[in-house]
Design a protein around this nucleic acid. Structure first.
Length: 490
RNA sequence: CGGGGCGUAGCACAGCCUGGUAGUGCGCUCGGUUUGGGACCGAGAGGCCGCAAGUUCGAAUCUUGCCGCCCCGACCA
């Protein structure tokens, strides 16, 4: 077996792919562009789902489920939305196969052509707003705060595990409100939920801001986003929250009677995060030894590995480990005791590092004599010998420390790789080196397009919290009121 | 859709140019020695060499066609 991973600094893509594969997270499937998420990878996703779902519930949302298929006529109703998604839709045209009259196998039965084609949802605004027409009549029905966990299909030309796959898992929130102000607040609130989740659970710092009109969601009046910086200096859009105005309300003829007894279209939002977050998690923290997981999302937070020579020694160690194992479990820590005999301890060390387990406890005969245990941290790769006494409390504290440290490390990386740039020459040379570039922009789509053409850099967002500061556009030299964030992106 | 590359054991690949018994490493099975950072030795099992046609006494190897996959572009809320 090849032991080392490719070096992160030498070939970032290969390094990423190897981690996904070797840490047993996912693999390419028989279907082009689609991904198989393996049990270990899915366990991480489930932890993300649970944390997010709790946050959605805490902000008053309920889960529901809508169909996989969207009639083509629905997709057509909102013009910009239709145009934005048309190029990447999988289309169902028939509902039956039959035996091939010319030989083996099956063919599409030409008599089973659908009267109207069905699109496999690339996102669910249309089918959901078609349903909301029946759900919303009065201001008393609002706000309608719904979330759905599901899969969507976008027929991408080129795919990458977790970052861009033809089918992916996500959640999409779809809300309807009586006033514009309320909908805008909801858009902002949910972006805040995403930012909190990504920073506090995933340990990945994000910039919050608004997309430029060019980069907006098709059919939205405003798109807010969180942007994270990966270790190769490229940006990754980690989540989006859209203010949809009354566009879908109008397109699907959804109306409600307000308190003044007047008919009005409701105001809408939609927001989503996907399995792409798994890609962000991998790329933000991992190193040349493999995956590094934040304790809050690690399926196994602590692994205990016995170090022994004879079966008798193993039995002695196991006897000592059992109460510790139970104590850790009782403290709410997800712990695994790996006493498998067909692998040696050194092999296990490497394996759990590759899988990103935050803490490893190593226990051998020497430790039993001295009443100690070897504690190894995944984030710093450091090891220390600790007294066995009080180890549960220590581990609990250490998990919190690792969670914080991972975030701090990522934050420091982002700060080191965020640059204020004021000249076009500096811009061009810095973009090659990667990172976020804070620069002035004249606010026009033409300039944005030109910069993209010449440098492959896009405006990741117009950040919320940047200070007002007059300046000149990096490209056109025209007046600009504040800096925006540029980067090359995934 | 354009440009390039690759299909040989579960995985990663060599062999092909110059046709002649199907190879290597990892993994797997068995035995022994090992065991505080991915152990070592020995013995084994495992193949329609992507599919099809052609050339030839003989094809993994040469020719043609087909199929599939990967990479780089185009595309990507």
């Amino acid at each position: 077996m090849s032991k080392g991973l490719p070096k992160r600094s030498e070939n970032y893509s290969e390094w990423y792919n190897e981690i996904v594969k070797r840490a047993d997270l996912a693999e390419n499937s028989a279907v082009r562009g689609c991904m198989v998420i393996k049990p270990y990878g899915f366990a991480i996703w489930e932890k993300m789902q649970r944390a997010l779902d709790d946050m959605f519930k805490a902000t008053g949302h309920q889960n529901a489920y809508f169909p996989l298929f969207v009639p083509k006529s629905f997709l057509e109703k909102e013009e910009e939305h239709a145009e934005g998604f048309a190029k990447e839709c999988a289309v169902v045209t028939h509902y039956r196969l039959k035996a091939n009259p010319d030989g083996k196998g099956l063919i599409v039965d030409p008599n089973a052509k659908l009267e109207e084609e069905l699109i496999i949802r690339p996102t669910s605004e249309t089918i959901i707003w078609n349903t909301y027409k029946n759900w919303i009549q009065s201001w008393r029905d609002l706000p309608l705060l719904i979330n759905q966990w599901c899969n969507v299909v976008r027929w991408e030309m080129r795919t990458r595990l977790f970052l861009r796959t033809a089918e992916f898992l996500w959640q999409e929130g779809h809300t309807a409100h009586a006033t514009k102000q309320e909908a805008i607040e909801e858009t902002e609130r949910m972006l805040g939920v995403y930012a909190t989740f990504v920073e506090e659970w995933m340990g990945v710092p994000v910039l919050q801001g608004a997309k430029t009109p060019n980069e907006r969601f098709a059919g939205a009046e405003d798109t807010l986003c969180i942007e994270a910086l990966m270790q190769d200096g490229k940006a990754l859009q980690a989540g989006t929250s859209h203010f949809l105005g009354q566009n879908f309300g109008k397109s699907f003829d959804v109306k409600f009677v307000n308190k003044e007894n007047q008919l009005e279209h409701p105001w809408a939002t939609s927001w989503g995060v996907s399995t792409r977050l798994m890609g962000a998690l991998i790329m933000a923290h991992s190193d040349d030894q493999g995956l590094v997981l934040p304790p809050k999302l690690a399926p196994i937070q602590v692994v205990i590995i016995p170090i022994y020579k004879t079966p008798k020694d193993l039995a002695t160690i196991s006897e000592k480990v059992n109460p510790i194992f139970e104590e850790l479990k009782a403290a709410g820590i997800s712990v695994k005791y790996d006493d498998a005999e067909h692998q040696r301890s050194g092999w296990k060390f490497a394996e759990y590092e590759l899988r990103g387990v935050p803490i490893r406890l190593g226990l051998g005969m020497r430790d039993l004599e001295s009443g100690t245990v070897e504690v190894a941290r995944r984030d710093t790769l450091s090891k220390e010998s600790r007294p066995l006494e009080g180890i549960t409390a220590y581990v609990k504290t250490l998990l919190d420390e690792i969670q914080a440290n991972i975030y701090q490390k990522a934050l420091a990386f982002r700060e080191e790789n965020t640059h204020l740039i004021d000249t076009w020459d500096d811009f061009k040379s810095q973009i090659e080196k990667g990172g976020f570039i804070m620069a002035h922009w004249d606010g026009t789509s033409e300039t944005e397009e030109k910069i993209k053409e010449e440098t492959k850099a896009t405006i990741r967002c117009i950040p919320f919290n940047s200070t007002e500061e007059a300046g000149k556009c990096i490209y056109s030299g025209k007046e600009s009121p504040k800096r925006v964030v540029f980067a090359r992106a995934y």
